[in-house]
């Protein structure tokens, strides 16, 4: 019965992977969901767990600090992914030209991506240092600023500085995907349009960009999902400060759990953040599916 044997094999081959994922992700997810309806606290002593229904959620929805942290996360996500997209495509277009050192530049571009996130955060923290940072010194010596500034110590600039560091590390991914897509644009298409009298700018908008839009969209959504859960870089660069100006949703939940030890209410925040992520993930899925069917058609 090879139909049945194939089916058996299918599940046997999958079983170990499913088991690991169920234990390490599914169970905790369900657990977090359950916790979010309780008033559990992290404590060394065994404490009674009380089911309190939607109370945590009602509080979470009316909590202005949580709401602000979501807004900050959205700001971080939209601005950094947006910049990564623009910079990534621009660099990809550049790398797609013929010039001396093209291969070297292509190899260099991968370096920021290879820098570990934490090292990236640490390096930029040093660069932003209020007294001895390279940024202050550079801008001062070039005459752009007359006084040293505390780039990540000032609530009005801190988030943007974190974004700059994030963009520096992550634009190469977008650039590489865009470049790979660009290399599949048929040269004839551009030549034909040029003969029709379309200028380079028009050609970019009406031919190149639509051609690479599919893969670009997928990688941008992927980056969005990643950016939305930002934690590491915030933890190292600003610790959520100053004045909570970089306290993103993940960081908010982290503090609720491990600083205030409120696991019940922390879980409700976590579930809400997970809900937003789930929407983004579904969006990714529909995009990726369209991409895949488009690619085979």
């Amino acid at each position: 019965m090879f139909g049945r044997r194939r089916k058996q094999e299918k599940w046997i081959l999958l079983a170990p992977a499913i088991l690991v994922l169920a234990l390490i992700t599914l169970t905790p997810l369900a657990n977090t969901f359950w916790l979010s309806f309780t008033d559990t606290r992290i404590s060394a002593l065994p404490t009674p767990v009380r089911f309190i229904g939607l109370e945590n959620y009602i509080y979470a929805f009316t909590d202005p600090e949580f709401r602000d942290s979501i807004y900050r996360t959205l700001y971080f996500t939209i601005v950094s992914v947006g910049l990564e997209g623009i910079l990534g495509v621009a660099v990809a277009v550049l790398l797609n030209q013929k010039f001396r050192g093209q291969l070297i530049l292509r190899a260099l571009i991968i370096l920021p991506w290879a820098v570990p996130t934490i090292v990236n955060a640490v390096a930029w923290r040093l660069i932003y240092h209020p007294d001895y940072g390279a940024l202050n010194s550079l801008l001062f010596q070039l005459g752009f600023i007359s006084d040293y500034r505390s780039w990540i110590g000032d609530p009005s600039t801190a988030m943007n500085m974190v974004i700059l560091a994030d963009v520096w590390k992550n634009f190469p991914l977008v650039a590489y995907v865009a470049l790979a897509a660009l290399q599949t644009v048929p040269g004839d298409l551009n030549k034909a349009a040029a003969i029709e009298g379309a200028g380079p700018w028009k050609r970019f908008w009406s031919i190149t960009l639509p051609w690479i839009a599919g893969p670009l969209m997928v990688v941008m959504v992927l980056r969005t999902i990643e950016a939305f859960r930002v934690f590491d870089i915030i933890y190292v660069m600003t610790g959520g400060g100053p004045a909570d100006s970089t306290k993103t949703a993940s960081f908010f939940v982290y503090q609720e759990y491990f600083n205030y030890l409120r696991s019940g209410s922390g879980a409700s925040y976590a579930v809400l953040v997970a809900g937003i992520s789930a929407v983004l993930i579904l969006f990714y899925y529909s995009n990726a599916k369209r991409q895949a069917s488009g690619a085979t058609a």
């Binding site: 390490i24 657990n31 977090t32 993940s250 789930a278």
Partner: peptide, 21 residues
């Protein structure tokens, strides 16, 4: 769909799993 479910598990923020773990 199962493969996508696999992928979805790593797309979720780790804070969703961290406390029970």
């Amino acid at each position: 769909v199962l493969l996508f479910a696999f992928l979805a598990t790593i797309m979720m923020p780790p804070i969703t799993y961290i406390l029970p773990l």
